[in-house]
Amino acid sequence: MESKVGKWIGRLILLALILMAVSLLALSLGPAHVPLSKIFHPQGIESIILFKIRLPRIILGLVVGAALAVAGVIFQGMFRNPLVEPYTLGVSGGAALGVSLSVIAGFRILPLAGFLGALGAISLVYFIARRQGILKISMLLLTGVMISFIASAIILLIMSLAQEHQLHGILFWIMGSLEETNPSLIKLVSLIILIAIAISFLFSRVLNVLSLGEEEALHLGVNIERTKRTLFILGSLMAGVAVSVSGIIGFVGLLVPHFMRLLVGPDHRILLPTSCLAGGIFLVLSDTIARTVISPLELPVGVITGILGGSLFIYFLTKRTLKLGK
């Protein structure tokens, strides 16, 4: 037991070091290069670039990446399905619909619109999937997928009717970006996500039990309805908050949990915290690539997470056999 915990702590320290290194790298790189030596004593314009532009973006990348990865761990665990990701349950569809509607209506506060959209979709899914106080996992999944389809159909309808500048606004949001400059919004989002992650961690052992199956979990004395409800709310909240500030950044929530399962194994007590760190690392790294590779122009970060994450994942998949459902 002690040796296992020791190994876990080792992995966490390693990831924390990588996280710091990646953050420093992200601080240093960009259209205006700030050498690492100057990061700790920036002057004048450099100080503004570092603390007003890059640092907020890095913090947002860390918390959004962490939120998506942890939500992925929670949903894959409770649905016992390796293909589930935070967006599967309609969070992204709802958020995108909310944003599209408000772009058309000229409503300016897009994060709020996105969050309300996500909240609407998730509540709909929840109440449809709930029967006589029982949350049916298969119903949740199917309803979520259907709500997502309906949402994207309506978004297409809106886009076909929209004017060009509105269309651009919608597309830009859907592609996802970490460019958010409002410091109080970043603080609020970080606070919500950190609290949600901390609570999720308390459920990590219960997630192990739940991943055996619902009946098995009942036999082991777990109150599964309360647990499923709480986990569903936590995961959706994290995904919803992340989506509403950063748009739809794909692959983080699907791939990071799988990567970490390869690295640390399936025990959620270590899978969840390592995924949290790795999600942040992965997103900040992807974002740094996205904004430097054709500098001064920027690529959508979702393009990088998709290409980088997908190909790395296939590489590891062929290296080691990973079980994706039997």
Partner: peptide, 24 residues
């Protein structure tokens, strides 16, 4: 009787191992 208390007194051995997509 709550599930937790019941689980301390009664254990159920299912017909087969639960199917997992990862290895324990």
């Amino acid at each position: 009787i709550k599930y937790r208390e019941l689980a301390r007194r009664m254990a159920v051995v299912p017909q087969r191992m639960p199917e997992l997509f990862f290895s324990y």
